[in-house]
Structures are given as structure tokens and as C-alpha cells.
Nucleic acid binder design. Structure first.
Lengths: 235, 235
DNA sequence: AGATGATAAATTGTATGCAAATTTTCTAAC
DNA sequence: GTTAGAAAATTTGCATACAATTTATCATCT
């Protein structure tokens, strides 16, 4: 799975000859993906030498990438004991969701001021498409559209820093999502209703309300992942 | 000026033998401070060799630190051309303020659910102290207390990830603040009124409203820094 | 047998070295 | 005098090397 390349934002940010995507960042992305995809379990040591061979580079650039990943919070660097995949405590997960809620809420507020009618239309289209998947109980497709809608709103906020941090968060949470790709029937209905409200607030460009709904929506999502799975979940 | 060391949060996060502050991160902090303090002008090249000597380390750990700083957005890494101090466009500044507004807004909402009565009392005390400085037109002291109140609210949100990112943002903005340590008389009054509302919403633990006010408050602050300075500014 | 301590192997953190690229300096032409 | 071009000198990016520390292995003792 790949990110959508940050099209417009990158072009806007790139000066005449700056911001060229260094071939060296490739190591970083590969390592990040490697960890996020779950090839290394939380608590595991990160085998420098082994990764060097499989990536075909020496330790120097790899260690630079590890430092960055540590700064991003994906791994821990223990003095003289190397890197370990960070374990996420329930509190960490709560903090992630709260941040995500905050980011989306902020994005929603800003998007109401800046989004074009065309972009609203596109989100509407995605919404109805998602609704179709909901009616047909097509969970993976529903999740995909859901994610896409949220990404569109964040993109419409017109804030590159926000978008970058948001994508970083969702990347870190991807591993968590693997285990949480399930939803209760009644929660699903509620989520769908919330999405109706989201779209409605966006149409009316009511930033205050959209911020509120998005925050609630994400916190509900978190609550759902916390509850022990009951008897009525789908899939 | 120093940060209040993150007391409780660090203790909570530190496992039995993990998270020891590596002596190596010292380079990172020193470099970050060196840049934030403004010893290097935007657009300047970062002299690797020179910094190595003045820090007393070789290029390897220094370059690791540079990679992290680049990930944080403080410097740019141009392929085969080394590091440059990042220049902030007006759009970058807008994005920073919007992020700050979003963070504080989110923090406020969370703080309303979690803050202790004691902590509210402390913020009240700071508020009235700040009000005194406002009445006596003591601008630097006012700014200090102002900053302190906002930090307290963020801390009261009980979200370490948010706090970390918030401090990163304010650090990056410190350089901008140097030039913006001025305020118009009428804006000062408005800011003071907004702070009254902030305290009021916090007392009532009305997260929705506090989030709204904080967002507005920060956006106003940004507008103030953008407007060309008129005739009635203080200092 | 299980625990304890010593030795060996592996791993980490940092310094140094070298090829490729860039920037600077110097020279020569217009 | 200014500009274009070539050679020298930095500078960058990466690989390797080496000391310090940690981890693993193994022999010894209770």
C-alpha cells in the first residue's frame, strides 16, 4: 500500500531547485514501511547488520534513519543496547486517537473556510459510495472509503504541516488498525449517522460544528476499539 | 529561558530501565537550541565541519542529529549540498499558528475533562497575576505569564504526545516571536478579555466552548502578527 | 542440578577514510 | 572590466575500522 503522493502541496513547497527527494530518504521510507507493516513485533530488537544486508547499505545511513524513526516515536533507542520496536501501551493508543481527533477536528474547521464546492461534491460522491458499501455490508470497501473521506477533509484544510503530521499518525496506527478491522453492527450504524452529520456540516460550512462532530466521531471510534468485542460484531 | 522539565509525564513514560536520556541526544538539543536561538540565519548553510569542532564530535553523530532536525522541519537537507536553515514563508507561519490553534484547542477540550480543581486554581492565580501585569502595562511579564497559562492548559490535557508536539511547535516559533514581541493596545485588551473567557470556560469545564475560544484566540494572535504595525502599538 | 562468575562473541557508538559531487579560485578570452 | 571556463579545494555521502559496552557461552562451585 502506498501513500497518494502529495501533489499540489509539494509543488507549492518546492522552491526552484530545492526539496528534491533524496534517494537516501528511500531507506527511511522502506524501514518505516517495514516496521509499520508489522514485520517486526513490538519489543523486538532491530537487527542493524541484518537490515543493512537486506537493504544493501552500510550502517551509517541506516543508523541515521533509525534516529529519525526514533524521533517519530516508532522505535526506542536504548543507550548501548540499540533500537527496539516501541510497544504501545493502552495510554499510547488513547493519546494517538486523541491526537487524531484533534487533527481532524482542526482540519474540519479549516476546511469549512477553504474547501471548494467541487471538492465538497467529490466528498459527497465518496460518501454515497460508502453508504452503498454500508448497505451491502461490505466492510473492507466501507473502511477504504471512510479513510478516503477523512483524508479528503484533511487535505481540504490547506495546511501542509497538519497533513504531514496526520499521515504520520495514521501510519503509526496502521498496525493497530490491523487488529481493529472490525466493527459492531450498532456502532456501524452510529458511525454512518455521524458521517451524515459530517457531510451536512461541511455543506453548510459550519466549522464549529464540523470540528465538534469530527472530534466526537473519532473518540467514539476509539471507544469502539477499546470495548471488548461483544457478540454482534461484523466479520 | 528553559522549559519546565516534563515531570510527571516522563516518569510515567519511563519503563523500569528504558528511556534513559542518552548523552548523545545532547548534540541534538544543543544544535536545536543553537538554531532556534537564531545564531544561524534562515537560508544559511549549516557548517558541518565547524560545528563538529565547536561541539567536539565527529561528523557521524552530528549528521544523525541533522537528519532528525530535518525531519522536525527546522532545516532542509539538499542532496549533495548539505543542510540549510529553513526559511519560513508567510504560509509556513500561517500553518504553524493554525497547528498551534488546533493543538491548544484540542488540549483545552481534553483538559476540561481531566484537570483537577487544584490545577484550575493555579491557572486562576497565574491569570490574575497576568492581569496585574496587563494593568501596569508590563509587557514582557505579561507575555511570560500568558505563555505559562497556555502551557498549563496543554499539560492538563494529559496527553504526552500532544504536549511534545506542542513544545516542538513553540520552539520552532520562538524565533518568530522575537520579532513579534509587540502588541497593539486594542488587541491587548481583546486578548485579555479572551483570557477571561478561557478561564471561565475552564471553570465550567465546558470543553466545547474552551476549544472554540482557544482556537479563535490563537487565530487572532496570528492576525495580529500579520497586520502591518500601526500607530498605537505598545513598546 | 542450579546458580555464579569468567571468558568469548557480537553489538553498539563514534571516528576516520575515500570517491563523487559541488563550490571556489584562478586564468584567459572577449 | 567583465565574463566564461577549467583546475583546485572543499564538502558531502557512504563505507569501513576500532574501542567500549553488552550479550551469549561455558566452566566452576555449592
Amino acid at each position: 500500500m502506498e501513500y497518494a503522493p502529495p501533489q499540489a502541496a509539494t509543488i507549492l513547497n518546492a522552491k526552484i531547485d530545492e526539496e528534491v527527494e533524496s534517494l537516501h530518504d528511500g531507506i527511511l521510507s522502506k524501514l518505516r514501511d517495514f516496521i509499520v507493516e508489522g514485520h517486526l513485533r513490538p519489543g523486538d530488537r532491530v537487527p542493524e547488520r541484518q537490515l543493512c544486508e537486506s537493504l544493501g547499505v552500510s550502517r551509517t545511513p541506516l543508523r541515521e534513519a533509525l534516529k529519525v524513526l526514533a524521533a517519530e516515536g516508532l522505535i526506542e533507542l536504548l543507550p548501548n543496547r540499540g533500537a527496539r520496536i516501541r510497544e504501545f501501551t493502552p495510554d499510547d493508543v488513547r493519546e494517538f486517537f486523541e491526537m487524531l481527533a484533534g487533527m481532524e477536528s482542526t482540519a474540519g474547521r479549516l476546511a469549512c473556510e477553504r474547501i471548494t464546492e467541487a471538492a465538497i461534491g467529490e466528498i459527497e460522491a465518496l460518501h454515497y459510495q460508502m453508504y452503498g458499501h454500508y448497505m451491502r455490508r461490505e466492510l473492507p470497501e466501507y473502511f477504504r472509503l471512510n479513510q478516503l473521506i477523512h483524508e479528503r477533509i484533511v487535505a481540504a484544510a490547506g495546511n501542509h504541516a497538519l497533513e504531514t503530521y496526520y499521515h504520520g499518525l495514521t501510519a503509526r496506527m496502521r498496525r493497530l488498525r490491523y487488529s481493529a478491522n472490525t466493527i459492531k453492527r450498532d456502532r456501524w450504524g452510529q458511525a454512518m449517522r455521524e458521517h451524515e452529520q459530517i457531510l451536512d456540516a461541511l455543506r453548510r460550512r459550519d466549522g464549529r460544528e464540523l470540528a465538534e462532530i469530527l472530534h466526537e466521531h473519532l473518540i467514539h471510534k476509539w471507544n469502539a476499539t477499546c470495548e471488548p468485542l461483544g457478540t454482534s460484531e461484523v466479520e
